[in-house]
Design a protein around this nucleic acid. Structure first.
Lengths: 274, 274
DNA sequence: ATACGGCCTCCAGCAGGGGGAGAGTCAATC
DNA sequence: GATTGACTCTCCCCCTGCTGGAGGCCGTAT
């Protein structure tokens, strides 16, 4: 016979836990002194305690454990319980993986943005951009509506997105309400090319080349200043600019927050006709 | 302005949850009627609610969310939170995987035993067993102490175990207290062979061959009957039996329960000298 | 006698809500 | 103006698997 303290040391379960198990009818001490209420545990209780520990380590609920203990004494008999438990664990695993990959995505995105910020000079640069496969939705109207286009692409290509969203501007002048633009996102090469689908999304190769580029920090409605700056540079250098021009959203509204517009980062890219 | 019911439909959070969030200071309605206590939510609350949904879907605690909302409005600022969360998720993932693999092991073991039961004739068979790499601990004394040997091997080779535990009997006669036997478990071929280590475990190849075998169902102390049966058969057939003989524990005490001895399955294998 | 440690019961609290009782409110209709 | 029916309010209990603490009894060593 063990007192509850001794039994606690033997089984590794805390005294509190033992009292709780008693109350729950999971592990009843073999003797309870009627006078004092003291609990005394026998050897056979040690075995039960071990079984309970095992089952708890497999994360069975106390209700399940109570049932299992009351009816069975062999693993063969609880196969159903084990398999139910396994399915639940699989499910949990799936959830965790999902959360993990979401977190990874968000973190990766933020880190890229941070790196871009660090290397940023906010001066016009000349560089070259590679060709890439993109999915795009051509739209006419207000720039503010581009979100619908991106949502459309996101819905359709979800996992196959492999780069930052950008906008192609087909207008040669600034238009407020009747702009002609295309919301685009680079996609993996495993996606099939094709004409414009019913959904309005076209998948095609976008060619690269030399370009002038300028990183813009701040809200979108201040992009004008950066456009002026880059256009002035291009004129000064005698570059002939191709249409459409690009606006790459390095850091825009996030997946969690709408984001602080002052921290938005956008790169304007203008390909040079050679 | 939305009433709590309307806001619930807009945000997809239940009324109960909204009240709870209010109480917790996570999402405070922009107007609370002093007279009636009615909560009214503004547009800005919708955005906050979305953020909360996102963060909850990443399984952030309400305490974290409250802090995040009170201090930040951009994902860049909560990178630390995200990374802490990610680590916690990784940890959870590890736990789940551990539990899952334990469950798999137990289930697989039980299913094998069940299959063995189904095909069992409980008659002496002739068959052949393959060679295998084993880890063994030679012991002298009582059979009942073999558990220590198995525990030793289990501790040392854990993940590399690839078959059922068995005992090699080096005695030609039955001995109670001073038996000479070896607790063995097959291990993966990736394990290095070697002499007897300090721990007493020896890793070596055990050769196979033709044998007579008999499945025994029931407690170990009734093995004698099955031994008698198989020996009689061997004598009848004029087989010359090799020492040591083997006792393979198809189903013994389990990982959870000590198990019901009446359901134990043990195969006696005796190699034939040719 | 007294001090100390072990044990008892009962209550509260964690997280993130769900369920329900009983009472007050709102808006529309009769 | 009154009534109805749909909403909403607060308050309390419940879930899981314990943990912590208060206040009081028990046993023994000194």
């Amino acid at each position: 016979m063990f007192s509850i303290g001794e039994f606690s040391k033997v089984t590794g379960l805390t005294v509190k836990t033992l009292r709780f198990y008693h109350e729950q009818g999971v592990l009843t001490p073999s003797v309870v002194d009627q006078q004092t209420g003291y609990r005394y545990y026998a050897q056979s209780n040690v075995e039960t305690a071990c079984v309970i520990r095992q089952l708890r380590s497999l994360d069975f609920s106390l209700a399940d454990i109570r049932q299992i203990l009351s009816s069975y004494d062999d693993e063969a008999d609880i196969l159903e319980y084990l398999e139910r438990r396994k399915e639940a664990v699989q499910e949990k695993l799936r959830e965790c993986r999902e959360i993990g990959s979401s977190l990874d995505q968000i973190i990766a995105k933020e880190k890229e943005a941070r790196a871009a910020m660090k290397n940023a000079t906010f001066e016009v640069e000349e560089k070259s951009v590679g060709a890439m496969l993109i999915a795009g939705v051509r739209m006419k109207g207000r720039y503010g509506d581009c979100g619908q286009g991106f949502a459309q692409i996101g819905k359709q290509f979800g996992r196959n997105i492999c780069g930052k969203a950008f906008l192609l501007h087909y207008d040669n002048e600034y238009k407020e309400d009747d702009a002609d633009f295309e919301a685009c996102i680079p996609v993996r090469s495993s996606v099939e090319k094709g004409g414009i689908e019913k959904s309005g999304v076209s998948v095609r190769e976008l060619s690269g080349g030399r370009c002038v580029a300028l990183l813009h920090k701040g809200p979108y409605d201040e992009l004008g200043r950066s456009y002026a700056k880059i256009m002035a540079y291009a004129k000064e250098q005698g570059f002939n600019i191709e249409t459409p021009t690009r606006e790459v959203y390095i850091k825009g509204p996030g997946m969690i927050f709408k984001g602080n517009p002052k921290k938005h980062l956008t790169e304007i890219q203008m390909l040079i006709k050679e």
